[in-house]
């Protein structure tokens, strides 16, 4: 009994409860048809949400005011540059991946440069840098949509027993981040800075270095997502990152990470990402009008966050 109670005290459980509830509500409506198909699709798209949300989570955990708004532009730039460099050649996939990661590294450097050297608040720094990156993507390829190499496209869309292969890789990455967060000096430092930057600094943590690494990490993950998403959807488009800005923040918050910083939660990201996809799928399956769909989406999200938050205060 106590172990069950312990599980329900975890802030991330509610995202999973909500996701499973929504899934059951969907397949009840279709009388079981497509139960597996919906889950496969949910894992395919949740994977992309989770990649960016992992980075966004680390940034948000750094404390109030920390958020990366350049994720969509970074995705677009990395996807555009990588697909052009690979030029549909299977032999160039590794090089393309490295180029994408290099783009992420560059983006992270620019972002933190603006934040640290010019002392611009992160929200403004990443917003303005995102215009630079988006323009760079437009300039680099003028919206030309180059197909990914066939081998890479097959990899990004392949499934094993209904589980997307890419999702398996990202689950492994999530576990790694989870361990890094709780078991390494870097991870503990991020949490400590989010709880109290001054105290963390006085305790001997190199605050600037940790923040620097975190913004780099977030940008590299966004670039990685751009690389895989353009492989998944048949090429990079200029607006491909658009939906990932609010999505990355929503996934982080619904997943049980504190929006005020200082407390991160990796498992919740998966629950939240699956939940957000399944809610849309469910409301589409019900065939409701757009207005009611948006209304219900809002209400359901509020409900889940309240359930999770209510549990926390009771503790």
């Amino acid at each position: 009994m106590s172990s069950i109670r312990q599980i329900f005290e975890k802030p991330w459980i509610w995202a999973f409860v909500a996701a499973i509830g929504v899934w059951i509500a969907t397949i009840t409506f279709t009388q079981g048809q497509g139960a597996g198909g919906v889950l496969t699709a949910a894992f395919s798209f949740a994977t992309f949400s989770v990649i960016v949300a992992l980075g966004q989570m680390m940034v948000i955990t750094l404390g109030p005011g920390n958020v990366d708004l350049s994720i969509p532009a970074t995705m677009t730039l990395a996807g555009t540059v990588a697909t052009k460099v690979m030029a549909t050649q299977d032999s160039m996939i590794i090089f393309g991946l490295l180029v994408a990661l290099g783009v992420g590294l560059g983006v992270g450097l620019v972002n933190y440069g603006l934040i640290r050297l010019l002392r611009i608040p992160p929200i403004i720094a990443t917003l303005s840098s995102s215009f630079l990156f988006q323009s760079a993507a437009i300039w680099y390829n003028r919206g030309l949509r180059i197909k990914p190499p066939p081998l890479l496209a097959d990899f990004a869309t392949s499934t094993v027993w209904g589980v997307p292969v890419l999702a398996i890789f990202i689950i492994v990455l999530s576990v790694a981040i989870h361990i890094a967060l709780h078991r390494t000096v870097y991870g503990r430092s991020v949490t400590a800075i989010g709880q109290n930057m001054r105290a963390a600094s006085l305790a001997g943590i190199n605050v600037n270095r940790v923040r620097f690494l975190t913004y780099i990490l977030c940008a590299v993950f966004a670039a990685l997502n751009g690389f895989f998403f353009s492989a998944f959807s048949g090429g990079a488009a200029l607006n491909m990152g658009q939906t990932y800005l609010l999505n990355s923040i929503a996934v982080v918050v619904i997943g049980g990470t504190s929006v005020a910083g200082g407390f991160a939660n990796v498992p919740g990201l998966w629950g939240a990402a699956l939940f957000l996809f399944l809610v849309e799928a469910m409301l589409n399956t019900y065939g409701l009008g757009a207005g009611i769909r948006l209304l219900l989406t809002g209400l359901i999200i509020v409900g889940v966050i309240t359930a999770a938050g209510g549990q926390k205060t009771a503790r």
Binding site: T26, I27, F29, T30, Q33, G34, A35, G36, G37, V38, T40, A41, A42, S44, F45, F277, L278, E280, A281, N284, T285
Partner: peptide
Amino acid sequence: AVAGILPS
């Protein structure tokens, strides 16, 4: 959106 509704 299509991927989400298609299985049903």
